[in-house]
């Protein structure tokens, strides 16, 4: 009797429309599952397989040797650490820059706020690769910056730091990333009720105290979104290091790319991808818990 009733309930209009509405998201579901989940899952499986370097068939399964590679070759492990370090520093510097710009536009620019905001966003359209190419010409021992400095007699020989190296990778990533981060921070700053700030001033707080005690805490959601936006891609970055990193500036992503492309070691590439995936998961999990879905949406 109760089974019969629940069976009937299942086909009530309510459930019916919930299933019908599901059709609207079905294409997206399928796309994400087929183009994202299944491939990522297959990589997960691949990471436990040992492939023959010649025939690329599975010779051993399951094995942990691909994962062990990271610990056997200390330069791989060091590369991962270096990448983490670069991701953290790039995140810190680009969020800081973006914060300064966002703060300025939100609180100091009175007219045409959105035009100023747009000015900083304009480089999106130029494409990332083109900006990297530009930086390639700017940097290097015979690059534009060194040439100009030499020409004006400010230096007598090229500055090494502005060659193709890890510092340049940091510089270029920071310069290309910070414009992307202005918007989420700006949105959260704009939302702050100005009366709160006036109240704080009114209570005798210095501008710095007001900033630290009121403005900054209230803008944190935007900052978290920005951190998420920059940290994760930087962990997987491999284009900028290839363009301006020279020999000393390559990152973990270059390793994966090379294993995929040149070394034909997909199994190792898969294991390293999984390492990257785990780090991403942890970062997303930590930040997601603090910002949630709604905040992420609002800052778009």
């Amino acid at each position: 009797m109760s089974i019969k009733k629940s069976f009937r309930n299942f086909f009530t209009a309510q459930t019916n429309s919930r299933l019908k509405d599901l059709l609207l998201v079905l294409p997206t579901y399928l796309w994400i599952i087929i183009v994202f989940f299944i491939p990522v899952f297959s990589v997960l499986i691949l990471s436990f397989a040992e492939l023959s370097p010649v025939t690329r068939t599975v010779v051993n399964f399951p094995v942990l040797s691909n994962y062990a590679k990271l610990f056997i070759r200390t330069d791989y492990a060091r590369l991962l650490l270096r990448t983490f370090f670069i991701a953290v520093t790039v995140t810190a510097s680009s969020v800081l820059f973006a914060y300064v710009v966002a703060y300025f536009i939100a609180f100091r620019v009175l007219k045409n706020k959105y035009t100023v905001l747009f000015l900083f966003q304009a480089p999106y359209f130029a494409t990332y690769m083109l900006i990297l190419l530009a930086w390639r010409l700017m940097l290097g021992s015979t690059g534009v910056i060194n040439s100009l400095l030499l020409y004006f007699g400010l230096i007598s020989e090229p500055i090494k730091l502005l060659g193709y190296n890890l510092f340049s990778v940091w510089l270029v990533l920071t310069a290309t990333w910070f414009p992307w981060l202005i918007l989420p921070i700006f949105v959260s700053l704009e939302k702050i009720d100005r009366v709160l700030l006036e109240a704080s001033d009114d209570l005798g707080a210095s501008p710095i105290t007001t900033f630290l005690k009121v403005t900054f805490p209230l803008s944190l959601p935007g900052v978290f979104v920005a951190v998420l936006f920059v940290f994760i891609p930087t962990m997987g970055e491999f284009i900028a290091p290839a363009v301006v990193g020279g020999r000393t500036g390559i990152l973990f992503g270059n390793l994966i790319y090379d294993f995929f492309l040149k070394g034909f070691r997909w199994d190792v590439a898969a294991a390293f991808t999984v390492y990257l995936l785990i780090i991403t998961f942890i970062a997303v999990f930590l930040l997601y818990r603090r910002i949630g879905f709604r905040k992420l949406m609002e800052s778009l």
Binding site: F36, V43, M235, G253, F260, L276, T280, F293
Partner: peptide, 23 residues
């Protein structure tokens, strides 16, 4: 669905690129 939707947004391209192409 919303959780699923956010996945490609927060995954480094290299992971998606390698996974999709090798697959």
């Amino acid at each position: 669905f919303t959780g699923l939707l956010l996945m490609p947004m927060v995954t480094p391209y290299i992971i998606m690129g390698f996974s999709l192409m090798s697959f």
